[in-house]
Design a protein around this nucleic acid. Structure first.
Lengths: 234, 234
DNA sequence: CCAAAAGTGTTAGGCTTACACCCATGC
DNA sequence: GCATGGGTGTAAGCCTAACACTTTTGG
């Protein structure tokens, strides 16, 4: 490629990933954080990130970072925001483009996360993070809350089969508030997005709760077209 | 500043501005476009843009580009999206961060725009644009439509005094559809955002229409907290 | 007096929300 | 048989959306 812009000033460009996970057992929305492995701020809590390479698109870079950390591909991922203050990174001028990703914590190989010194931390107990990473997380969490109203992305955080109770727990974890059970079910069912299976989950109750799964074709429609899922407050 | 990242690959980072303007006379939402002044694609239609400098934040760069083009400061401006495909710019690898800005076309000094070869073009008749600028515009227009539901940013496009008819015309230009007059007025008035003035605009009708202006303190509240302004379709 | 634009209320239907009891089962 | 969590319906209020005529005044 002919380079027409040879004389201009160049910048380091990074991607940072806000990786949300949901643990169906302890019903908490979590964030995958790492101990930083290079200077400055070596050893401090940080979002997983990396620098964009010469022959690599920005979203490719974000997927690469996620893959190297978790071994996962085909993950729901979305660009969040470009952070461009001159002094945001104390190690040099770095423009970072944050992304958020949704995975369910069971998909993740624990060996892998251990190797990369990654840890799940509950969204309600985030440790101190380097640079502007706290703001980056807050923005991503806000976008998750908004986004989940418009697209049924919440399912990305659940295993393939789940109960309505588990789905509601997830929404409560994301919004950090109680939701009315009957209204929640009414709304979700009326979307015709879910298929009731004949199987029950019987670990958490004697009666057992029916498993559901989302109907992939309907789910894809919703992801494209959007829907509106608003919630009452109690 | 110590540079810890000296050996890494650097990139050109640009900002592009999607500058929306509204012309109260012909009731059209417009876009400020320029003829590109350097290679490649010299002379073709393009969004106004520029490269981010070493000691300049990304949003500062966007404001600088807007200022150099229009002479305006204190403009409503918002980051839109980072475009990072390796081959999006045929002149070299450039990551661009698009922003959108709202101004009313009267604020703009015509001499200034002539000097910079900038032209207002109606949103419904956008010429062919270089690179991925069409996609950038589409995204910004979508964000404007969504954003105006949540924040009353529409006023940024109007002069200080405006009539309810003018305000409705603006919304119709943004959404490119008709809105019911009574419902529109009911909703806008119920927000207690507007102050009715004693003065009438008498150019477009014999009866004349009362001028309104937004109450700055209320407006600021709304900008911070958000509101929800949804519209009916006819 | 008439043309042209401004201004004004009401109603039906749908959606949101609040709320409490029965069901199934393992122990 | 009882403790535990799963599952179910209805009514009130609010918001949205559809709809048409009167007012003002310059020419």
């Amino acid at each position: 490629m002919v380079d027409h812009y040879a004389v201009l000033e160049k910048h380091l460009v990074a991607v940072d990933c806000v990786i949300f996970g949901y643990d169906i057992r302890d019903k908490e929305l979590k964030l995958l954080l790492i101990r930083r492995r290079f200077e400055p701020e070596l050893g401090k809590w940080s979002l997983p990130g990396g620098f964009v390479k010469k022959e690599e698109g920005v979203s490719e870079a974000a997927r690469r970072v996620l893959y190297q950390l978790t071994g996962l591909k085909d993950v729901y991922m979305k660009q969040s925001y470009a952070w461009g203050d001159v002094h945001r990174d104390t190690g040099g001028r770095v423009i970072t483009i944050s992304h958020f990703a949704l995975i369910n914590t069971f998909e993740l190989n624990p060996v892998m996360t251990e190797a990369s010194a990654a840890h799940w931390r509950s969204i309600s107990r985030i440790p101190e993070l380097i640079f502007d990473h706290k703001k980056i997380v807050e923005r991503a969490h806000y976008e998750l809350k908004e986004g989940i109203k418009l697209k049924p992305v919440g399912f990305e955080l659940l295993p393939e089969k789940f109960t309505l109770v588990q789905l509601q727990d997830l929404y409560e974890a994301i919004y950090q508030r109680k939701i009315d059970k009957r209204n929640f079910r009414k709304k979700i069912i009326s979307m015709n997005l879910l298929e009731k299976l004949d199987e029950k989950e019987k670990e958490t109750s004697k009666k057992g709760a029916y498993y559901y799964r989302f109907i992939p074709s309907k789910y894809d429609d919703f992801k494209r077209q959007g829907f509106y899922f608003s919630l009452d407050v109690q």
